[in-house]
Design a protein around this nucleic acid. Sequence first.
DNA 1: ATGCACTACTGCAAAGTGCAGTAAGCGGCG
DNA 2: CGCCGCTTACTGCACTTTGCAGTAGTGCAT
Lengths: 221, 221
Amino acid sequence: MRRQLSTTGYAVLGLLALRPLTPYEITQQMQRSLDYCWPTSERSLYDQPERLVAAGYAMRQEPDGDRAARYEITAAGRDALRAWLATDSAMPRFQNEPMLRALFADQGTVADLHRTIDDLRAHVAQRRRLGVAQMEPYLTGDGLFQERSHIVTLTADLVARVLDAIEDWADEVAQVTAGWTTTEGLGLTDEIRPILERIVTEGNERVRRAAEAADATSDND
Amino acid sequence: MRRQLSTTGYAVLGLLALRPLTPYEITQQMQRSLDYCWPTSERSLYDQPERLVAAGYAMRQEPDGDRAARYEITAAGRDALRAWLATDSAMPRFQNEPMLRALFADQGTVADLHRTIDDLRAHVAQRRRLGVAQMEPYLTGDGLFQERSHIVTLTADLVARVLDAIEDWADEVAQVTAGWTTTEGLGLTDEIRPILERIVTEGNERVRRAAEAADATSDND
DNA sequence: ATGCACTACTGCAAAGTGCAGTAAGCGGCG
DNA sequence: CGCCGCTTACTGCACTTTGCAGTAGTGCAT
């Protein structure tokens, strides 16, 4: 009954809050809908249902014939989920290996960098295709859990914005590095300097705006 | 000599390629510069130097007095780093707990959602302040490893674009949900529907453009 | 002289990951 | 008809990572 759930545990609990699922169905739902914000290995998901049962947050339904048993959220589980939503969130944690490789690009070849960027572009394109296909049904009222479309739309919007950001960046890097013959020691070329200037000026601009917005908020309190 | 390094191992190796570091310095550099793309626990970093030595990719320098020993990359280490850069990259893996909580917002209160979004905005603002402060010196030629400023600028640009995307999203969510009195069952309201339409139309537009670009590339091969 | 924060780690239990392996069902094919 | 390969639905295991508690030294204020 006692141990504290991990974020992955609450993610699974959130899925069970919508409907009872078998362990395999949990892996599929997780892949389909939560992978955008909470990627996990399939392996770890198979252990979650029994942990939820041990915590009193889920119960195993009697299996129907020789099919796998579904797990169902309990009242205590709903309470725990509600309580978790009222706690402070961990902030985003973005593992971005293509960017890591870009940071070490001067240890490798121009071709290495181009290949990594191309792979990233292909990956983003693929993700977007899947995402759009999942969202289209909601427009005609045929989405999964259509009554949740307000929430699904808002979160999909974040995914779309981040994918756009990555794609635009990849396009820019591909363009800027197209003429490179070395990865080392280039420094602030005519193409790089304006990018740095934009980052710093627009960054400062946004920092200023955020500070003003924060001031306004604290005035209203 | 044998075991295969993790991505974290290569990240540390990449740092050592710039200059020899003590374990503590590795944690500080990792925090300062690679946390944007490769967040890790401090704890795991303390084990990396000895693993690199075991693999033959680094050597422990003789410590100077009672100070901690620095670890230095070996020729085999540089080869391994180069070889790694030539392999396929893993694709980004974004853990985004605020978004996960937004997806389950209908299990909690409007206040929970607003608080999570506010925390996210504050976090993004903080990250941006740090990032801009790190980039400004490069404009005047005073950045760390200024000769790497072309690479540092390009990767900082990705960070800036992603932070902008998240901030704009947070602003939008704050605005759209400001008038909500419930988190449940709202569906496609007058404010939500246009967002969904934008996601789908602009998403399809980008999918189309990416497909054209991919065609053009394969024509050129 | 004592307290206290900060630096620089180490140990340990629990959680997560990658990958190999397994077993059941099922459609095709000679 | 039996076997082949494929997909579905998992389990076991070795290894890595994480979070957190603990510790030892150092500077510096009270």
